[in-house]
């Protein structure tokens, strides 16, 4: 549904997006993950037809983003980073305006359906300016969906709203995948993990990793980690002992305990328990540590920085 090849965007001599290639299939939720300034917004603005790429190409549903821009725009629903609203319109007028501008014939039915879907039907006569931030966000989503686009592009849709609404928006996005292809950007790593089928990690305009959240975890953190809490250590320093356990690659002291990283594919739990008992300590807690994308991201970025310094 989305095919991106060597897409590049330069502002003056600053390269914001640097020869990125990726694709997304129908019904897939693809996450673009990256810190501020990574090039997420620039990428989305090129795909929506807001601005042309400096180089490279992309197609949406088979239409080229430059040559067939109008066809592409008809098939895209876009929610920019800052939800664009007309404060003086009513909720219904606002959605009707975008429906008509995007060529929806007899829009009334779609308008009601979409307002129902984002639970704004009872507020249809309210002025947009009177809505709370969370409701404005939902109205933005309604505008994105009203012409039933094949591709939905959401630029950091959970920024600046309260936690309850964040959960709602994430659920709404997951829900969209039944009928649409979704491109979803975020700088929150756990969010990408929760919402997306596949994730692209973008840093300084380049793709630094790509895959399902599980694959990324596998690739970058092949070993399972366990967390242990030990009692009765006295003045001894257990790090060295723990590092000596067969199959332990790395030991990290955390508040209240230690994180032990295992070498790939190894279950170290039995050995850890045995060694702690041998040392005469008490094992208070032992549990697996799930690696988050946060860790992955830190690892990639620090590796990149190291490479840069080596150059």
């Amino acid at each position: 549904m989305i095919e991106v090849k060597e897409l590049t965007k330069r502002y003056g001599n600053k390269t914001a997006v640097d020869r990125i290639s990726f694709s997304a299939g129908a019904g897939e939720i693809l996450g673009i993950l990256g810190p501020n300034g990574a090039g997420k917004t620039s990428t989305m603005r090129m795909l929506t037809g807001f601005m042309p790429p400096t180089d490279g190409s992309a197609t949406l549903d088979g239409f080229d983003i430059v040559a067939d821009s109008m066809e592409v725009r008809r098939r895209v629903g876009y929610m920019p980073e800052r939800v664009p609203l007309y404060p003086d319109m009513t909720v219904e007028e606002y959605v009707r305006f975008w429906a008509k501008l995007r060529g929806v014939r007899r829009p009334q039915k779609s308008i009601e359906a979409v307002l129902d879907r984002v639970q704004l039907l009872d507020r249809r006569r309210s002025l947009v300016r009177s809505l709370s931030k969370g409701l404005k966000q939902r109205l933005g989503l309604a505008q994105t969906l009203v012409h039933n686009p094949k591709v939905i592009i959401l630029d950091e849709p959970t920024i600046g709203i309260d936690p309850q609404q964040v959960i709602e928006v994430r659920a709404a996005v997951r829900d969209l995948a039944h009928n649409h292809t979704v491109l979803f950007s975020t700088h929150i790593l756990s969010e990408a993990e929760q919402v997306c089928d596949r994730v692209i990690i973008l840093n300084q305009g380049r793709i630094v990793a790509e895959g399902t959240p599980a694959e990324l975890r596998q690739k970058l953190y092949p070993g399972d980690s366990v967390f242990v809490q030990i009692g009765g250590v006295g003045h001894a320093k257990p790090e060295k002992t723990l590092r000596g356990i067969n199959g332990v690659k790395q030991v990290q002291k955390l508040a209240g305990g230690y994180a032990l990283e295992a070498v790939a594919g190894r279950d170290i739990r039995a050995d850890v328990v045995k060694r702690i008992q041998q040392a005469g300590w008490t094992l208070l807690e032992l549990r697996p540590v799930a690696v988050t994308l946060e860790d992955i991201f830190l690892k990639i970025v620090s590796r990149e920085d190291a490479e840069e310094q080596a150059e």
């Binding site: 603005r45 800052r82 060529g103």
Partner: peptide
């Protein structure tokens, strides 16, 4: 100012 320009410019017009 309101950012609606970005949506107008990505509408099929």
């Amino acid at each position: 100012r309101e950012g609606t320009m970005e949506l107008l410019l990505t509408a099929p017009v």
